[in-house]
Design a protein around this nucleic acid. Structure first.
Length: 315
DNA sequence: GGCCCTCTTTAGGGCCTT
């Protein structure tokens, strides 16, 4: 099974969803939801995921229910999904959709894994010294609540706001979950998307040396373990197999280069997590088509947390 | 900090991620 055949209908949904608010966003969740509870209640089957979260009103201790259609933190989260201009929609809709003959019945296929494209924004490049401040993911299966994004409170100053536009004020707030509070929400989202008995395949660009180690260290700091059925695919080494028109390997395999190569229309709001996730979804589709990579072949290229060497993070 | 490439392998520099 090719990725583009698996995703064909879902990329159509992706294109159609761009410009609309369709993601799940979290600011603060109910205190009764804990990693422990989630782990105990885990079941290997796809099930609905409530988009409603409970937030605490800082300073008053009161509680307030949020709808996933509203309650953004200073508008910053919403802006990350509205990265495509309306004028770009026509171009997106005209993008070639491969193997359209192959049916994707009801949005479900016999794909051997749940494929989640994800990206993080951090306070810097050091997995030990820096922290994750934004997480975004998109299930390639598409459908309702297929996207997930939230800011994360790093409990420290954000010195690289110029890179992603996420300031200290935006994340160092009682309304924003710390990573330990974010973990059970993430697990709930993943299990709501996971197909029974099949692993989750996380896809990120340069994931093996950046995103995944960052996640590992954050989980370790919270004394939590990642689920054993999480696999990871790094698109960077895959993209490095691409060749130019002269048959030589491409000199750059950065996201910027790939976006330009595949003429994916994006505006100037790169380096927000959902923006980059959306771009990577398109890049992944094009990349696997060009290299004729199937989903099973992607699985063969995947790695596990145990494949990454890490030393305990400094406190 | 891992990976890749080369003016290499007993090394070093650039890429890639924020």
């Amino acid at each position: 099974m090719s990725l583009y055949s698996f995703c064909c209908g879902n990329f159509q949904q992706l294109r159609n969803s761009i410009g609309h608010i369709c993601s799940i966003r979290f600011l603060k969740y109910h205190s009764r939801i804990s990693s422990e509870n989630v782990l105990q209640n885990r079941r290997h089957k796809t099930r609905p995921f409530s988009a409603t979260v409970l937030a605490r009103n800082a300073g008053k201790g009161s509680k307030q229910f949020f709808s996933n259609d509203r309650h953004l933190h200073g508008g910053s989260v919403e802006s990350s999904i509205e990265v495509f201009k309306q004028s770009d929609l026509q171009h997106l809709k005209s993008l070639q959709c491969y193997d359209i003959q192959e049916k994707v019945s009801g949005g479900k296929t016999d794909c051997p894994a749940t494929i989640l494209v994800f990206d993080i924004e951090t306070t810097g490049f050091s997995r030990r010294g820096d922290r994750i401040i934004e997480f975004a993911a998109r299930d390639l299966m598409g459908g309702k609540n297929s996207t997930f994004q939230t800011l994360i409170n790093p409990e420290r100053e954000v010195k690289n706001a110029a890179v992603h536009g996420i300031s200290t004020k935006m994340v160092c707030s009682s309304d924003i979950p710390r990573f330990g509070e974010f973990i059970p929400i993430l697990l709930q989202y993943v299990w709501s998307r996971q197909v029974a008995g099949k692993p989750v395949m996380w896809v990120a660009h340069n994931g093996k040396t950046f995103d995944v180690p960052f996640l590992i260290f954050e989980f370790q700091r919270c004394k939590q373990e990642m689920p054993a059925d999480w696999l990871f695919v790094d698109t960077l080494p895959i993209a490095r197999q691409l060749v130019d028109s002269d048959g030589e390997k491409i000199s750059s395999a950065s996201m910027k280069t790939l976006v330009e190569r595949y003429k994916i229309p994006v505006d100037g709001k790169a380096h927000r997590a959902m923006h980059d996730v959306t771009a990577l979804c398109y890049v992944l589709q094009k990349l696997t088509f060009e290299l004729k990579l199937t989903v099973p072949q992607l699985l063969e290229k995947s790695f596990r947390v145990s494949d990454i060497t890490t030393t305990p993070p400094k406190k």
